[in-house]
Protein backbone atom coordinates (compact mmCIF):
# COMPACT_ATOMS: atom_id res chain seq x y z
CA UNK A 1 0.00 0.00 0.00
CA UNK A 2 2.73 2.35 0.99
CA UNK A 3 4.57 1.46 -2.20
CA UNK A 4 1.56 2.37 -4.30
CA UNK A 5 1.23 5.66 -2.48
CA UNK A 6 4.90 6.37 -3.07
CA UNK A 7 4.43 5.65 -6.79
CA UNK A 8 1.49 8.04 -6.86
CA UNK A 9 3.43 10.81 -5.15
CA UNK A 10 6.44 10.33 -7.44
CA UNK A 11 4.14 10.37 -10.45
CA UNK A 12 2.38 13.55 -9.37
CA UNK A 13 5.66 15.32 -8.76
CA UNK A 14 7.07 14.27 -12.14
CA UNK A 15 3.77 15.38 -13.61
CA UNK A 16 4.29 18.87 -12.24
CA UNK A 17 7.44 19.12 -14.33
CA UNK A 18 5.58 18.00 -17.45
CA UNK A 19 2.89 20.57 -16.78
CA UNK A 20 5.54 23.25 -16.53
CA UNK A 21 6.86 22.19 -19.94
CA UNK A 22 3.41 22.05 -21.50
CA UNK A 23 2.25 25.50 -20.34
CA UNK A 24 3.96 27.48 -23.07
CA UNK A 25 2.84 25.08 -25.79
CA UNK A 26 -0.73 25.28 -24.62
CA UNK A 27 -0.59 29.06 -24.43
CA UNK A 28 0.75 29.32 -27.99
CA UNK A 29 -1.92 27.01 -29.25
CA UNK A 30 -4.62 28.92 -27.40
CA UNK A 31 -3.50 32.24 -28.87
CA UNK A 32 -2.78 31.18 -32.43
CA UNK A 33 -4.43 27.78 -32.91
CA UNK A 34 -1.07 26.74 -34.28
CA UNK A 35 1.26 24.10 -32.93
CA UNK A 36 4.80 25.33 -32.35
CA UNK A 37 7.11 22.39 -33.02
CA UNK A 38 10.15 24.58 -32.40
CA UNK A 39 9.12 24.97 -28.76
CA UNK A 40 11.52 22.38 -27.33
CA UNK A 41 14.36 23.60 -29.52
CA UNK A 42 13.72 27.15 -28.30
CA UNK A 43 14.06 25.98 -24.70
CA UNK A 44 17.17 23.99 -25.56
CA UNK A 45 19.00 26.73 -27.47
CA UNK A 46 18.23 29.21 -24.69
CA UNK A 47 19.58 26.76 -22.12
CA UNK A 48 22.71 26.17 -24.21
CA UNK A 49 23.33 29.89 -24.50
CA UNK A 50 23.04 30.13 -20.72
CA UNK A 51 25.45 27.24 -20.19
CA UNK A 52 27.86 28.69 -22.73
CA UNK A 53 27.95 31.99 -20.83
CA UNK A 54 28.44 30.03 -17.62
CA UNK A 55 31.39 28.04 -18.99
CA UNK A 56 32.99 30.91 -20.85
CA UNK A 57 32.48 33.84 -18.52
CA UNK A 58 31.62 32.01 -15.31
CA UNK A 59 28.27 33.69 -15.15
CA UNK A 60 26.58 33.06 -11.82
CA UNK A 61 23.42 31.00 -11.60
CA UNK A 62 21.18 34.07 -11.28
CA UNK A 63 22.75 35.62 -14.37
CA UNK A 64 22.35 32.34 -16.25
CA UNK A 65 18.67 32.32 -15.32
CA UNK A 66 18.19 35.81 -16.72
CA UNK A 67 20.17 35.00 -19.86
CA UNK A 68 18.07 31.90 -20.54
CA UNK A 69 14.74 33.69 -20.16
CA UNK A 70 15.88 36.63 -22.28
CA UNK A 71 17.34 34.30 -24.93
CA UNK A 72 14.15 32.24 -25.03
CA UNK A 73 12.15 35.45 -25.48
CA UNK A 74 14.24 36.57 -28.45
CA UNK A 75 14.30 33.11 -30.02
CA UNK A 76 10.53 33.05 -29.61
CA UNK A 77 10.25 36.36 -31.41
CA UNK A 78 12.43 34.98 -34.22
CA UNK A 79 10.30 31.84 -34.56
CA UNK A 80 7.11 33.88 -34.52
CA UNK A 81 8.24 36.25 -37.22
CA UNK A 82 9.45 33.40 -39.40
CA UNK A 83 6.73 30.79 -38.97
CA UNK A 84 3.68 32.21 -37.30
CA UNK A 85 3.37 35.88 -38.09
CA UNK A 86 -0.03 36.19 -39.70
CA UNK A 87 -0.40 39.26 -41.81
CA UNK A 88 -3.41 37.64 -43.43
CA UNK A 89 -6.43 39.68 -44.29
CA UNK A 90 -8.52 39.93 -41.14
CA UNK A 91 -11.65 39.90 -43.26
CA UNK A 92 -10.80 36.53 -44.68
CA UNK A 93 -12.85 34.58 -42.18
CA UNK A 94 -16.07 36.38 -42.79
CA UNK A 95 -15.50 37.03 -46.47
CA UNK A 96 -15.03 33.38 -47.30
CA UNK A 97 -18.06 32.50 -45.26
CA UNK A 98 -18.62 29.91 -42.60
CA UNK A 99 -19.69 27.15 -44.97
CA UNK A 100 -16.78 27.48 -47.33
CA UNK A 101 -14.37 27.45 -44.45
CA UNK A 102 -15.51 23.99 -43.44
CA UNK A 103 -14.30 22.57 -46.72
CA UNK A 104 -11.18 24.62 -47.11
CA UNK A 105 -7.89 23.46 -45.72
CA UNK A 106 -6.23 26.20 -43.78
CA UNK A 107 -2.95 26.54 -45.61
CA UNK A 108 -1.47 28.74 -42.93
CA UNK A 109 -1.71 25.90 -40.47
CA UNK A 110 0.34 23.55 -42.62
CA UNK A 111 2.90 26.22 -43.41
CA UNK A 112 3.34 27.07 -39.74
CA UNK A 113 3.68 23.42 -38.77
CA UNK A 114 6.20 22.60 -41.49
CA UNK A 115 8.25 25.74 -41.04
CA UNK A 116 8.36 25.38 -37.26
CA UNK A 117 9.66 21.86 -37.82
CA UNK A 118 12.46 23.25 -39.99
CA UNK A 119 13.27 25.88 -37.38
CA UNK A 120 13.34 23.16 -34.72
CA UNK A 121 16.18 21.49 -36.63
CA UNK A 122 17.93 24.79 -37.20
CA UNK A 123 17.83 25.85 -33.55
CA UNK A 124 18.94 22.46 -32.31
CA UNK A 125 21.89 22.46 -34.70
CA UNK A 126 22.85 25.94 -33.53
CA UNK A 127 22.83 24.74 -29.95
CA UNK A 128 24.94 21.69 -30.74
CA UNK A 129 27.45 23.84 -32.62
CA UNK A 130 27.66 26.14 -29.64
CA UNK A 131 28.49 23.29 -27.24
CA UNK A 132 29.47 20.16 -29.18
CA UNK A 133 29.95 17.91 -26.17
CA UNK A 134 27.13 15.48 -25.42
CA UNK A 135 26.94 16.20 -21.74
CA UNK A 136 27.24 19.77 -20.47
CA UNK A 137 27.22 20.79 -16.84
CA UNK A 138 24.45 23.17 -15.84
CA UNK A 139 24.93 25.54 -12.91
CA UNK A 140 22.89 23.75 -10.33
CA UNK A 141 21.24 24.47 -7.07
CA UNK A 142 20.94 20.86 -6.01
CA UNK A 143 18.15 20.15 -3.62
CA UNK A 144 18.82 16.52 -2.93
CA UNK A 145 16.88 16.09 0.23
CA UNK A 146 13.44 14.64 0.58
CA UNK A 147 10.81 15.01 3.20
CA UNK A 148 9.59 11.83 4.81
CA UNK A 149 5.93 12.03 5.66
CA UNK A 150 4.38 8.86 7.02
CA UNK A 151 6.94 6.69 5.27
CA UNK A 152 6.50 8.49 1.93
CA UNK A 153 9.46 10.30 0.43
CA UNK A 154 8.68 13.65 -1.19
CA UNK A 155 11.50 15.02 -3.33
CA UNK A 156 11.83 18.70 -2.60
CA UNK A 157 13.19 19.69 -6.02
CA UNK A 158 10.24 18.08 -7.81
CA UNK A 159 7.81 19.63 -5.37
CA UNK A 160 9.29 23.04 -6.10
CA UNK A 161 8.77 22.58 -9.84
CA UNK A 162 5.24 21.31 -9.38
CA UNK A 163 4.39 24.33 -7.24
CA UNK A 164 5.93 26.61 -9.87
CA UNK A 165 3.74 25.04 -12.56
CA UNK A 166 0.66 25.38 -10.38
CA UNK A 167 1.40 29.01 -9.57
CA UNK A 168 2.05 29.99 -13.19
CA UNK A 169 -0.98 28.23 -14.63
CA UNK A 170 -3.29 29.52 -11.92
CA UNK A 171 -1.85 32.99 -12.35
CA UNK A 172 -2.44 33.00 -16.09
CA UNK A 173 -5.96 31.65 -15.58
CA UNK A 174 -6.89 34.32 -13.07
CA UNK A 175 -5.41 36.97 -15.30
CA UNK A 176 -7.39 35.69 -18.29
CA UNK A 177 -10.61 35.63 -16.29
CA UNK A 178 -10.42 38.87 -14.39
CA UNK A 179 -8.53 41.47 -16.37
CA UNK A 180 -9.47 43.57 -19.33
CA UNK A 181 -6.37 42.40 -21.23
CA UNK A 182 -7.23 38.80 -20.41
CA UNK A 183 -10.70 39.29 -21.83
CA UNK A 184 -9.34 40.76 -25.05
CA UNK A 185 -7.03 37.76 -25.32
CA UNK A 186 -9.89 35.33 -25.00
CA UNK A 187 -11.99 37.35 -27.43
CA UNK A 188 -9.22 37.42 -30.06
CA UNK A 189 -8.75 33.70 -29.75
CA UNK A 190 -12.49 33.04 -29.84
CA UNK A 191 -13.32 34.95 -33.03
CA UNK A 192 -10.72 36.91 -34.99
CA UNK A 193 -13.04 38.97 -37.17
CA UNK A 194 -15.33 39.87 -34.29
CA UNK A 195 -12.30 40.88 -32.24
CA UNK A 196 -11.16 43.21 -35.01
CA UNK A 197 -14.64 44.71 -35.18
CA UNK A 198 -14.67 45.71 -31.52
CA UNK A 199 -11.21 47.24 -31.93
CA UNK A 200 -8.91 44.60 -30.45
CA UNK A 201 -5.41 44.60 -32.03
CA UNK A 202 -5.49 40.88 -32.78
CA UNK A 203 -2.14 40.45 -34.52
CA UNK A 204 -0.20 42.32 -31.84
CA UNK A 205 -1.86 40.28 -29.07
CA UNK A 206 -0.93 37.05 -30.81
CA UNK A 207 2.68 38.10 -31.22
CA UNK A 208 2.91 39.07 -27.56
CA UNK A 209 1.27 35.80 -26.51
CA UNK A 210 3.71 33.79 -28.55
CA UNK A 211 6.71 35.60 -27.16
CA UNK A 212 5.43 35.25 -23.60
CA UNK A 213 4.99 31.52 -24.15
CA UNK A 214 8.58 31.31 -25.37
CA UNK A 215 9.76 33.17 -22.27
CA UNK A 216 7.87 30.55 -20.26
CA UNK A 217 9.87 27.85 -22.02
CA UNK A 218 12.99 29.62 -20.77
CA UNK A 219 11.70 29.68 -17.19
CA UNK A 220 10.71 26.02 -17.39
CA UNK A 221 14.01 24.88 -18.85
CA UNK A 222 16.05 26.82 -16.30
CA UNK A 223 13.99 25.41 -13.45
CA UNK A 224 14.30 21.84 -14.66
CA UNK A 225 17.98 21.98 -15.65
CA UNK A 226 19.23 23.78 -12.57
CA UNK A 227 17.81 20.97 -10.48
CA UNK A 228 19.25 18.29 -12.77
CA UNK A 229 22.67 19.91 -13.02
CA UNK A 230 23.30 18.91 -16.63
CA UNK A 231 21.98 19.31 -20.15
CA UNK A 232 22.25 17.07 -23.24
CA UNK A 233 21.14 17.55 -26.88
CA UNK A 234 18.14 15.35 -26.09
CA UNK A 235 16.69 18.11 -23.94
CA UNK A 236 14.77 19.89 -26.74
CA UNK A 237 13.07 16.73 -27.89
CA UNK A 238 12.21 15.78 -24.33
CA UNK A 239 10.68 19.20 -23.62
CA UNK A 240 8.55 19.06 -26.78
CA UNK A 241 7.30 15.50 -26.26
CA UNK A 242 6.50 15.66 -22.59
CA UNK A 243 5.07 19.13 -22.89
CA UNK A 244 2.98 18.23 -25.90
CA UNK A 245 1.54 15.10 -24.32
CA UNK A 246 0.72 17.00 -21.11
CA UNK A 247 -0.89 19.84 -23.07
CA UNK A 248 -2.88 17.49 -25.28
CA UNK A 249 -4.11 15.38 -22.37
CA UNK A 250 -5.37 18.53 -20.72
CA UNK A 251 -6.87 19.95 -23.93
CA UNK A 252 -4.64 22.24 -25.97
CA UNK A 253 -5.25 25.87 -25.14
CA UNK A 254 -6.46 25.24 -21.62
CA UNK A 255 -4.34 26.69 -18.83
CA UNK A 256 -5.48 24.55 -15.92
CA UNK A 257 -5.96 21.60 -18.26
CA UNK A 258 -2.22 21.39 -18.86
CA UNK A 259 -1.74 21.02 -15.11
CA UNK A 260 -4.20 18.13 -15.01
CA UNK A 261 -2.67 16.63 -18.13
CA UNK A 262 0.83 16.83 -16.72
CA UNK A 263 -0.16 15.21 -13.44
CA UNK A 264 -2.06 12.46 -15.27
CA UNK A 265 0.93 11.79 -17.50
CA UNK A 266 3.27 11.65 -14.50
CA UNK A 267 1.09 9.18 -12.60
CA UNK A 268 0.57 6.93 -15.62
CA UNK A 269 4.31 6.91 -16.29
CA UNK A 270 5.16 6.16 -12.70
CA UNK A 271 2.78 3.20 -12.40
CA UNK A 272 3.51 1.73 -15.81
CA UNK A 273 7.23 2.01 -15.17
CA UNK A 274 6.92 -0.02 -12.02
CA UNK A 275 4.53 -2.57 -13.53
CA UNK A 276 5.83 -2.90 -17.08
CA UNK A 277 9.34 -1.47 -17.07
CA UNK A 278 10.80 1.31 -19.19
CA UNK A 279 9.36 0.15 -22.52
CA UNK A 280 5.98 -0.41 -20.99
CA UNK A 281 6.08 3.14 -19.72
CA UNK A 282 6.45 4.59 -23.21
CA UNK A 283 3.73 2.28 -24.46
CA UNK A 284 1.34 3.35 -21.73
CA UNK A 285 2.04 7.02 -22.35
CA UNK A 286 1.18 6.87 -26.03
CA UNK A 287 -1.76 4.55 -25.47
CA UNK A 288 -3.10 7.16 -23.05
CA UNK A 289 -2.59 9.93 -25.58
CA UNK A 290 -4.32 7.91 -28.29
CA UNK A 291 -7.24 7.19 -25.97
CA UNK A 292 -7.69 10.86 -25.13
CA UNK A 293 -7.59 11.83 -28.80
CA UNK A 294 -10.08 9.15 -29.84
CA UNK A 295 -12.61 9.63 -27.06
CA UNK A 296 -15.16 12.37 -27.74
CA UNK A 297 -13.97 15.56 -26.18
CA UNK A 298 -16.12 17.19 -23.59
CA UNK A 299 -14.37 20.06 -21.95
CA UNK A 300 -14.68 21.73 -18.58
CA UNK A 301 -18.06 23.34 -18.93
CA UNK A 302 -19.45 20.48 -20.96
CA UNK A 303 -20.52 22.69 -23.83
CA UNK A 304 -17.53 24.91 -24.32
CA UNK A 305 -15.88 22.99 -27.14
CA UNK A 306 -13.76 25.85 -28.33
CA UNK A 307 -10.12 25.34 -29.27
CA UNK A 308 -9.28 28.82 -28.08
CA UNK A 309 -7.43 29.96 -25.02
CA UNK A 310 -9.34 29.13 -21.87
CA UNK A 311 -9.10 28.37 -18.20
Amino acid sequence: MLELLQLLVDGLLDGGVYALLGLGLSLTFGCLKRLNLAYGATAMLAAYIGVWCHLRYEASIAVVAIIIVVAATFIGWYVEQLCFSRSDDPGFQSAVGAQDRLFMTDNGEMVALASSFAIWMQLEQLAVNLLPRHLNPFPSMPIESSWMIGGIAIRQDRLLLTLLAAVISTGISLWLLHTRAGLSWRAASDHRTAAYLVGIPVVQLQTIGFILASALSGIASFAVLSLDGQVTPMFGMWVLFKGLVAAMLGGLGSMLGVLRGGLLLGVVESFSQSLLGAQGREFATYALLLLVLILPRHSDSGRRASWGIRI
Binding site: S94, R186, H191
Partner: peptide
Protein backbone atom coordinates in the same frame (compact mmCIF):
# COMPACT_ATOMS: atom_id res chain seq x y z
CA UNK B 1 -23.22 44.84 -36.40
CA UNK B 2 -21.83 42.22 -38.78
CA UNK B 3 -23.62 39.78 -41.00
CA UNK B 4 -24.24 36.48 -39.20
CA UNK B 5 -23.85 38.39 -35.91
CA UNK B 6 -20.35 37.07 -35.08
CA UNK B 7 -20.76 37.16 -31.33
CA UNK B 8 -17.93 35.64 -29.28
CA UNK B 9 -19.38 32.15 -28.79
CA UNK B 10 -17.13 31.07 -25.91
CA UNK B 11 -17.54 34.30 -23.92
Amino acid sequence: VPENRLVFPAL
